[in-house]
């Protein structure tokens, strides 16, 4: 058992070290400020500005999270506080199945359903000129649908862990069911809710396949949600293996992986930090 634990720790440090070593080549050659804040991406001329990819990733993830937050919270509250227990029993496996669908299937669904929907309805609705529909918003919708079951599962566990006596205490003081949920249950569950969305965020940020299929993959800083983007994971997946002959390109992709890794790590640590802080107060 100890050996397994050590193995897991080694794996983490191994991956970090591997990524660092492999991307060292480009970090040495090009200043970090240029790598992170330049939008000039011309690998063949030795220009590696990661800004379009970083911004695209942030856009897709944030919009996906904004879409997922109300859906997840309302579903979890309904299922644990209002719905008949039988409905919760039926919904658990349904949610698990949704969470288990391969991401490429979600990607296909995005291409076949979401992209045309965005192209024909949503873009004209918001007064844009009609475009292909392959854009940040399509990616965000697909991504939201993917992380929703994952987050709902965690939220259900969190809400179910709140002792019934606490609900009873609030009700006995003359609070209605909704007031109890608002002032007592949500407050008690707050650290858990933050961590659930934090985990969902990390997952969304690294998700590759489904997003790459619908997001457009145009290297340009997106200025609106109906513009195409090119997130970091898509950059790696689309190009790795093709350009291995060019040393610095290979290193650049490794640097993208490192960036992804660090950003997800920061999200994780931030949500943990928030939990610790909230639990103390």
């Amino acid at each position: 058992m100890l050996l397994c634990t050590i193995f897991i720790i080694l794996l983490l440090t191994g991956i970090t070290a591997g990524l660092l070593i492999k991307s060292w080549h480009i970090i040495e050659k090009i200043p970090l400020s240029e790598l992170l804040f330049s939008d000039d991406w011309r690998p063949l001329s030795g220009k590696f500005g990661f800004l379009p990819f970083i911004i695209s990733s942030v856009w897709v993830t944030m919009v996906a999270l904004l879409l997922a937050i109300p859906a997840c919270l309302l579903t979890a509250i309904y299922l644990t506080q209002y719905a008949h227990r039988r409905l919760l029993r039926i919904m658990r496996p349904v949610i698990d199945i949704l969470a288990g669908i391969p991401s490429v299937v979600y990607g296909l669904w995005g291409v076949l359903v979401i992209v045309p929907l965005v192209s024909h309805f949503l873009v004209p609705l918001f007064g844009g000129t009609q475009n292909t529909g392959y854009c940040i918003f399509s990616g965000a919708i697909v991504l939201a649908v993917m992380i929703i079951p994952f987050i709902i599962n965690i939220l259900i566990e969190i809400f179910k862990a709140i002792p019934e006596e606490l609900t009873e205490a609030s009700l006995s003081l003359g609070a209605t069911h909704w007031e109890t949920i608002k002032y007592v249950i949500l407050r008690k569950a707050w650290p858990g809710i933050i961590s659930a969305f934090g985990l969902g965020l990390s997952r969304a940020f690294g998700e590759t396949m489904a997003v790459l299929m619908v997001v457009g993959n145009v290297i340009k800083i997106p200025t609106g949600i109906f513009q195409p983007g090119y997130p970091l994971p898509a950059l790696i997946a689309n190009n790795y293996g093709e350009m291995l002959s060019i040393d610095i390109y290979d290193s650049a992709l490794m640097f993208a992986a490192l960036l992804l890794f660090i950003i997800v790590l920061i999200f994780n640590m931030l949500s943990r930090l928030i939990i610790i802080k909230l639990e103390v107060t």
Partner: peptide
Amino acid sequence: VANIRKKMGLLAQRPYPLPM
């Protein structure tokens, strides 16, 4: 029902202070 419950204070086996 909230009014009816309010007329009765409740003390449980273990204290469950509200999260505030």
